[in-house]
Amino acid sequence: MKNRRHVNREKIVNALELPKDLMLGTPCLTMNGNRELLIENHRGILTYSDRQMVVLAKDIRIEISGTGLYVEYYTADLMKIQGQMDGIAFRP
């Protein structure tokens, strides 16, 4: 039921050409190579270590694996992660 409601909402946002990150609250990821990752619209950190970081977002979890990971800055809706990143996975 919830998923159907989400699909409907996405259709409306697409039809009206509205920005999805604002209207749907989906996370927006920007990468510079594999050394910098900027995450907007996050909901907080779930686990935090220098090898793996799990960041919560609306409906999904973002798993970042690598070495020497650290948070350069962390505000209510913006987070910048630095380090050697090996992979990014999205889990429901």
């Binding site: 907080g44 935090y48 948070v71 800055y73 505000t75």
Partner: peptide, 17 residues
Amino acid sequence: GRFLNLCTRRGMNIWNV
């Protein structure tokens, strides 16, 4: 981790973690 999340919820800025 929970401490960091709570800080950001209350509008506190944190950097170089």
